[in-house]
Computed example of a mutant assay.
Amino acid sequence: MSAINMDIHRAEDRYTADHGWLRSNFSFSFADYADADNWHFSSLRVLNDDYISPGTGFDLHPHHNMEIVTIVLEGQLEHQDSSGNKEFILPGQVQRMSAGTGIYHSEHNASEEKKLHLLQLWFFPELKDAVPSYETFTYGLDHLRGQLLPVVSNKSGELNTAHIHQDMTLYLSKPGAGQTICFRQQAARSTYIFVIEGHLKLHDGTLLYSRDDARIINTNEIRITANEDSHFMLIDLP
Results as ranks from 00 to 15, higher is better:
residue 105 H to T: 12
residue 106 S to R: 11
residue 102 G to Y: 00
residue 100 G to C: 04
residue 105 H to R: 09
residue 91 P to A: 07
residue 75 G to W: 00
residue 94 V to W: 10
residue 85 N to W: 02
residue 82 S to R: 08
residue 86 K to V: 09
residue 83 S to T: 13
residue 74 E to C: 00
residue 93 Q to C: 06
residue 75 G to M: 06
residue 93 Q to D: 10
residue 95 Q to F: 02
residue 104 Y to H: 14
residue 80 Q to K: 15
residue 82 S to F: 03
residue 81 D to A: 00
residue 82 S to M: 02
residue 77 L to E: 13
residue 104 Y to T: 12
residue 105 H to C: 13
residue 104 Y to K: 12
residue 83 S to H: 13
residue 76 Q to A: 08
residue 99 A to N: 05
residue 83 S to K: 15
residue 90 L to C: 03
residue 80 Q to P: 04
residue 99 A to S: 12
residue 75 G to E: 10
residue 104 Y to N: 13
residue 103 I to R: 03
residue 107 E to D: 09
residue 89 I to M: 08
residue 107 E to S: 06
residue 95 Q to G: 07
residue 92 G to T: 10
residue 103 I to S: 02
residue 89 I to S: 09
residue 81 D to S: 05
residue 88 F to P: 00
residue 74 E to W: 00
residue 95 Q to M: 12
residue 80 Q to E: 12
residue 107 E to I: 00
residue 91 P to R: 04
residue 83 S to Y: 04
residue 95 Q to W: 01
residue 97 M to I: 14
residue 107 E to P: 05
residue 100 G to M: 05
residue 82 S to P: 06
residue 77 L to C: 06
residue 94 V to T: 14
residue 83 S to Q: 15
residue 100 G to E: 03
residue 83 S to L: 15
residue 93 Q to W: 09
residue 106 S to A: 14
residue 98 S to Q: 12
residue 100 G to I: 05
residue 88 F to I: 15
residue 85 N to A: 07
residue 101 T to P: 03
residue 103 I to A: 01
residue 85 N to Q: 08
residue 96 R to P: 03
residue 90 L to K: 15
residue 75 G to L: 06
residue 104 Y to E: 09
residue 94 V to M: 13
residue 84 G to A: 02
residue 89 I to Q: 11
residue 102 G to W: 03
residue 74 E to P: 00
residue 103 I to P: 01
residue 74 E to Y: 07
residue 80 Q to T: 11
residue 96 R to W: 15
residue 76 Q to F: 00
residue 92 G to S: 10
residue 78 E to T: 01
residue 97 M to C: 11
residue 100 G to P: 06
residue 82 S to E: 03
residue 106 S to I: 04
residue 74 E to V: 04
residue 99 A to M: 05
residue 75 G to D: 13
residue 101 T to G: 02
residue 104 Y to I: 01
residue 97 M to L: 15
residue 86 K to R: 14
residue 92 G to F: 13
residue 98 S to L: 12
residue 86 K to H: 15
residue 94 V to I: 15
residue 88 F to R: 12
residue 88 F to Y: 14
residue 95 Q to A: 04
residue 82 S to D: 03
